[in-house]
Design a protein around this nucleic acid. Sequence first.
DNA 1: TCTATCATGTAACCAGTTACATGATTTT
DNA 2: AAAATCATGTAACTGGTTACATGATAGA
Lengths: 195, 195
Amino acid sequence: MAAGRGSVNNPLGLVVLAFLIERPMHPYELGKLLKQRNKQESIKYRHASLYMVVDQLKRDGYIEARETLRDRQHPERTVYQLTEPGRVELENRMRALVAVPVKEFPQFEAALALIVVLPPGEVAALLDRRRHALLEQAEQLREHVGARQEVEHVHLIEYEYRLALVEAEREYVQRLRNWVLRGEVGELWRSLHAE
Amino acid sequence: MAAGRGSVNNPLGLVVLAFLIERPMHPYELGKLLKQRNKQESIKYRHASLYMVVDQLKRDGYIEARETLRDRQHPERTVYQLTEPGRVELENRMRALVAVPVKEFPQFEAALALIVVLPPGEVAALLDRRRHALLEQAEQLREHVGARQEVEHVHLIEYEYRLALVEAEREYVQRLRNWVLRGEVGELWRSLHAE
DNA sequence: TCTATCATGTAACCAGTTACATGATTTT
DNA sequence: AAAATCATGTAACTGGTTACATGATAGA
């Protein structure tokens, strides 16, 4: 039930397991595929990290080396395949991730928690800048999600999700900005910035 | 302009700087205050990490030791105070965080990007579980934000923000669930799970 | 042929976490 | 007075990142 002590807490590890369902691959191939499918938008990817998680997954028995290719124009490439425990782990992690929201700590939330260190007037202007940036992001996402009948919808849901969040944030930022601008911020905050 | 190479990428570092504006403090006091003000909800806090970031901030000249208290019923406690570069850095980081959205990688987005590894039927059920969880979260947040006239509004905006995001996610999850349930998921996904 | 870029990997570094340590205070 | 908890910190581990390395291929 509890998604065990296993190392696959790393989203990148999930990708590896998920891709290896399709066929055995060597690490570099996994990385290439990840980029081809634009998963770096949703899953943080550094190519050195890939070799790391592959090692971890091997260590924990979720994948295993299947063969080592040796031709002269590449370094050795080890091809890995999913093990049965690996497939089980993948499914369990996926189920948990979909069904149970995990607590995240977005940086903007941290900033809001400390907002009183900036004077209200400036905050209003900064929020305005953010609002514009979010507008642009939303625009791009809408393009991406919209104009593609050639891509299966199921491959766009990450973007739809992102779009939903960006829109919500944009609306909230606007509300907040207006509240600040209307000067209803209360004595406490204002008093911290009086001279 | 670019919020330099400095170590204060860590949100916890921001808290330290922000709190030290009020008065010099020793690390343990910072931690206590952080919890009293419920900032652990918005900023990940491990007490050992606190000592780490304090060291980093000292190393980088953003804070400095002011005195070392030595009474017999505590270990030595070093009191730190903000330096002028520290105050500047704090303000710059805050401005950047408020004005410029940073790319985050929420786990649920990763899961959505890999959703095809689970069969659509099961996904619908899992989404339903998530929907319920989000409903509860929203309920709690609403209580927290609502029933408090005694707390200054500015100290609740992190929660308001969170609430806005949770609500948006809930709505999106519901849309997605319905789409899956209506069986419009397309051949690709379904074919991966036929036997 | 020189330079850039791809393909592929290793190594060194550092941030953040878990676990341990220890004296005081409070509860049972 | 034993057990639990608070107060305060250090140390060891490990995951992830940045930086380095090296041969092949492709443009200029």
